[in-house]
């Protein structure tokens, strides 16, 4: 019971965490990436399609990343080079991704009743660790993407706070004019951030279809990209905070499944709305912009 809940929490938290770490890097560079939902969606679809046609998990993961990177490249062209409004461009990317994945799914796999399935990514047990009661199977008998997601938390945290690259990234997000004046290349930094986020949201999408659902339905990302946006805010633009917030939101979603199964008196919609409502409450109490990068969302047209 507890074990199932914890396992479900980790399963729900992983795609959110992967996407949110990408979003964190992008936002630290000064770009608000609303298109993250779309990048997850194309990752989910292309990962499944490539695995289905090739039979190879590795090719599936590669395709998922490539597709999400391509979509983010389009977004980067718009918001970095053309300096268009990031909200409008990101929303367009989301709408486009929903349409493209839907059309291609219908065209390649038809509408017939049974959904296509693949053999999913297998969990990898980490030797004796996996045999620890309760936490063993929860933490150490998971798919490779779970280990990757959680290993990335300290890596991203230290990269942003302790490395030269992290400093440059933060400069682009806080004072783009100053960063450019120092020759750091704001366009380059924001492009790089969006490409890294492309890989991570591609993997987040791939997790949904290749490790969790093993199939695809239209709009399978179901708002998880937007939850990742919340996670970055609730985590106060910090990788450790993002990790904690992902687990918290993962637990809220897992709790909803559990309570539904046991016929709880609390309506399940309450838990579905919880991540979003929680974000609003956090924002209302902490003030929206206190910890946000100063130049977040502001287009930076180079003179």
């Amino acid at each position: 019971m507890l074990e199932a809940f914890l396992a479900s929490t980790i399963a729900m938290a992983t795609p959110i965490l992967l996407a949110a770490l990408g979003e964190l890097i992008v936002e630290r560079s000064g770009v608000l990436n609303i298109g993250i939902e779309g990048a997850m969606l194309v990752g989910a679809f292309c990962g499944l399609a490539a695995t289905y046609f090739s039979g190879s998990i590795a090719l599936g993961l590669l395709a998922a990343c490539a597709a999400a990177v391509a979509l983010n490249a389009l977004l980067a062209l718009l918001v970095v080079n053309f300096a268009v409004n990031q909200v409008v461009a990101g929303t367009a990317i989301d709408i486009l991704a929903l349409g493209l994945t839907g059309v291609f799914y219908r065209q390649w796999f038809g509408v017939t009743g049974s959904a296509i399935t693949i053999s999913p990514m297998r969990p990898i047990a980490l030797g004796p660790l996996a045999r620890i009661p309760v936490i063993g199977p929860v933490l150490f008998d998971q798919s490779a993407l779970v280990y990757l997601a959680f290993a990335l938390v300290p890596i991203v945290a230290l990269t942003i706070s302790r490395t030269r690259y992290g400093l440059e990234l933060r400069a682009a997000g806080e004072r783009p004019e100053a960063a450019d004046a120092l020759g750091l290349g704001v366009y380059r930094l924001r492009w790089q951030a969006l490409m890294i986020a492309g890989v991570l949201s591609g993997l987040a999408g791939a997790y949904l279809t290749m490790a969790y659902a093993n199939t695809f339905v239209e709009g399978i990302s179901a708002g998880r990209g937007y939850v990742a946006l919340s996670v970055v805010i609730v985590g106060r633009w910090n990788a450790w905070g993002v990790g904690a917030a992902s687990i918290m939101f993962g637990a809220a979603i897992a709790l909803q499944f559990g309570l539904q199964a046991f016929g709880s008196a609390i309506p399940y919609q309450f838990f579905l709305a919880l991540p979003y409502a929680l974000t609003l409450i956090v924002l209302a109490f902490m003030g929206g912009q206190a910890d946000a990068p100063s130049a977040l969302g502001a287009p930076y047209p180079r003179a």
Binding site: L74, N85, Q86, V87, A89, Q289, A292, P299, P301
Partner: peptide, 30 residues
């Protein structure tokens, strides 16, 4: 996407593009 790209291209050379002012301090979104 095409419309915002058009506007950006049309506004090239002008410091402020149609869909994104140069102003942005204070953390407002565009």
């Amino acid at each position: 996407i095409i419309l915002v790209a058009f506007d950006a291209l049309a506004a090239r050379g002008i410091r402020t593009t149609l869909w994104g002012g140069a102003e942005g301090a204070g953390g407002t979104v565009a």
